[in-house]
Design a protein around this nucleic acid. Structure first.
Lengths: 233, 233
DNA sequence: CCATAAAGTTAGGATACCCTAACAAATGTT
DNA sequence: AACATTTGTTAGGGTATCCTAACTTTATGG
């Protein structure tokens, strides 16, 4: 059983490496800054987590998660994002309020709770910020985000966010039967006025370029982004 | 801000005094046993909580909560029982599984979360164990429990539990449109066969004595039980 | 290629919570 | 009332997490 604090270090390492994308390792200072502690403190914990075989660490070197450490970190992220989704969808929290509370909820220990929550929310793929929710197997594909404007005709995509947060825009989005986690198909493009034709749960709409460039989506039909399975080293 | 541990001590004191009913004070050893720690540890904490003016404590004396301490303890109980209700009603946990997880969830800090959860659950009055959930004002009336068999005709009562946990019985209860937190009225009693007539959300049913003695209720029309408001000393 | 800056480490100390062991007060028994 | 038992307290120590300050290693750049 990991402590609250140990879990936070694992999550931080995940965010500094795989999630941020480019790097595979993180420095001690960098980690300390991320967690709001002093380098000396982070150093202590790195040694402890190395003991537990959750982190790869060597004196004066960069650190990274082991397979096991990564698996645990992804599980914490899964819980965090499921709770964010719960707060947003069921308890009417706004997207900017969910993070703080989810930081606490992510440490609740109960496998059954996580599974049931996932089911209760209907197995959401993205959280209210448009970030991927790792599935029950610990798989977390990070698809590339783009706007609807950039999507290819014929592809099916999922809305994960908006660029315009105004009430007017959000109401319009709602009218188009769109919303976070809503999956739909781009069925065509009008040659004359460039309107984008989409099919959302059986209904067809035409969307202007102005609107399309403010809708953030991911597309599984396009080349997949980085694949971050728990098994990846 | 109270620590996780401090909160547990306050809750324990509440349970050993007001909740259990008879006593107004608790001893150091008693408290230690309740929390699974040694008396020396409980002693340290009592001194600390006295400093914070949450507990009344004197060397070699019994301890009790101050008004402020009691208010905080009741709030923790409120959170605990709301989470139990959530797990039971929304996530299909059984009544005996909810406690352990709620022990963790009760420490989550977010006033908005508590309010929204309460609303989401439709302001339940009782948790899955039939215990009263303190309301948003910190009021916690502890009504006397009895069986439906003992209820007076004309009174309105709320089901808070069952004595028989068999599937057969629970299904029957369901058929009568009854369940935890369901409020209904006892409208009559058939002189001939002693069946009890109740009115549940507009529908009328006749219940046998056999069934009635297995349904635990509380009645607000009968003399109220102990009233434990946060303001009580 | 060496001096300085940046990054990382160690030692020693603080606090929160828990323990054991020895001691002190209160209670109960006759 | 005197002693035994129960109850409560203190002193001293352990672990986890954090800190500061002094130090070492690595990286940088003239």
């Amino acid at each position: 059983m990991l402590s609250y604090t140990e879990e936070n270090y694992l999550k931080a390492l995940l965010q500094l490496t795989f999630e941020t994308g480019l790097k595979e390792e993180a420095g001690t200072n960098e980690l300390a800054v991320h967690l709001g502690v002093k380098p000396a403190t982070a150093n202590d914990m790195l040694k402890k987590l190395k003991q537990k075989k959750l982190v790869e660490y060597q004196r004066y070197g960069k650190s990274s998660l082991t397979g096991e450490g990564k698996k645990k970190a992804i599980y914490i992220v899964r819980k965090h994002r499921l709770w964010e989704t719960f707060l947003f969808k069921k308890l009417e929290f706004s997207w900017d309020e969910v993070h703080e509370v989810a930081e606490q909820l992510e440490h609740i220990q109960s496998a059954k709770l996580v599974d049931k929550l996932d089911e209760f929310l209907n197995f959401p793929a993205f959280d209210p910020h448009g970030d991927v929710i790792p599935n029950a197997k610990g798989e977390m594909n990070i698809p590339e985000k783009k706007t609807l404007l950039e999507e290819v005709v014929g592809h099916t995509c999922t809305m994960v966010g908006v660029k315009d947060n105004s009430a007017t825009f959000l109401q319009y989005v709602d009218k188009l039967h769109l919303g976070i986690n809503q999956t739909f198909k781009v069925t065509g493009r009008q040659a004359y006025d460039n309107l984008i034709e989409i099919e959302v749960s059986g209904k067809t709409f035409n969307v202007s370029e102005r609107v399309a460039e403010n809708i953030v989506i991911v597309c599984k039909d396009c080349k997949a982004g980085k694949k971050n399975k728990k098994s990846a080293a």
